[in-house]
Design a protein around this nucleic acid. Sequence first.
RNA 1: CGGGGCGUAGCUCAGCUUGGCAGAGCGUCUGGUUUGGGACCAGAAGGCCGUAGGUUCAAAUCCUAUCGCCCCGACCA
Length: 511
Amino acid sequence: MAKNIKSRKDDYAQWYLDVIKAAQLADYAPVKGCMVIRPEGYAIWEAIQRDLDRRFKETGHVNAYFPLLIPQSFLAKEAEHVEGFAMECAVVTHSKLEKGEKGLVPGGKLEEPLIVRPTSETVIGYMYSQWVQSYRDLPLLINQWCNVMRWELRTRLFLRTAEFLWQEGHTAHETAAEAQAETLRMLDVYTDFAEKFLAIPVVKGRKTDAEKFPGADATYTIEGLMQDGKALQCGTTHFMAQNFSRAFDIKFLGRDQKTEFAYTTSWGVSTRLIGAMIMAHSDDEGLVIPPAAAPTLVAIVPIFKSDDERNTVADFTSKVVAALTGAEEVAAAAGRPSADGITSYFFDKSTGQKIVVDWRDARPGDKQYHWEQRGVPLRIEIGPRDVAAGTVVLKRRLDREKLSVPIGELSGAWLRQKLEQIQAAMFQKAREYRDQNTRDAGSYDEMKKILAEQGGFVRAYFKPDRASEAKIKEQTKATVRCIIREDPAQPGKCIYSGETTNSLVLFAQAY
RNA sequence: CGGGGCGUAGCUCAGCUUGGCAGAGCGUCUGGUUUGGGACCAGAAGGCCGUAGGUUCAAAUCCUAUCGCCCCGACCA
């Protein structure tokens, strides 16, 4: 048992924080609500960025960067948008600090206050209006990786922080159909990414009007189910129709010689995905990282008593590492500086994923816990007994499976296969959990009972309506996570109003 | 912003009710014995008791103010 991590059963919220702390993913910053992403956590974000960025480029997008500060007046141009974000904007009103009677005070008051971007639709819309003149300028398919700030009242590491890192895609199109297709295409990109890369099964669907993005015509979401039975929104895509193009005057001369407003979309995922990954996969022993996202793939723990044994084990370990990464990498690693006795070898230079050997002066048990809590998918133990037998002991983080493997079997391809098996098993496990915790409710009473006793997703017919949704939230703490089907051929009776509706929705308590 | 809790060693906290030498465990450092799942022995370092004011011979302890953090709500990727 991990002695520094509360069990999920005893205190889920504390468990989550303990896992982050034990794995050194993040720390609290001096400013309330802000977070320091430590190297172990940032490496996971880099992995997410790398894979998603490739997917964006494969779907025709390019990266750019827009400024952090936005004129306050921009936010007000789209009525719903200002309504949605005004309450959580950090506002910059001064340009310098001056010497006052009691130390430094803000000086150089700005004529127009600036806001720190909570999202960039407005500033990007403004720029697009200058860049788009003709249908030939469309579609405009731009993404940016950046930080945004939303002054949230309550924060939790990774899940909700005042400042967070994300990507925001912003596209402009000639027709509504194209923009709608883009919105759904990116939802598919997110879905595939969440399931293949992070091994998190997600449900795709449309948000109700009550839950949609301020200023959007339609918002789509992928929803994951965490191990405490609560849902987490993992990514959203928005169809803005002409709302922002009208507000920011993004217009073009069409093929028919007529001026028209462009149709825009936006879509984003954030460092919240790291929180999702933690809560979807980790266990009472600590972090479990899906191999695709793991910065360190294998941690090798040498075991020895005397200097003689150490030398023998070291020779054998070199052979093991060479079998996995190649002899050139072993030679290259010898020339790299290594921190406190941990030597690193690249297994995959394109992703930066490593194999490490832990030569620190600590007991083997300590090292086992160390790498286990950091979620490293595989550990290899090499001791005198293994050297004698020509084997290594392989341990899977996911299920603690332990087996002895002859050194002759080890190779890069062998390791890749092992990692793929783990990746698949993790997705399978999470999907089974999700499926087992998705229940149908035929009545409001039944839904209340399920939510109170079991949690998870509740699937039910529901006619979306702001007032009803507010009441349901008040009574059950659950919200409509998404509409999963709107098929006129398969209508049903709304569990709340009793009216006939086409909307089959998923309810859950959410983060 | 409302309700509750808490600020004491790097961390977790005891001490406060009833004022009287600043404490424990863990961690860190040193030396030794150890090393196949969180070792043991011996020694050491480490503090403006959140901050400011007040009461008192005397304040971590009582009073006042203030700042900050955590939990529960409202707001949210």
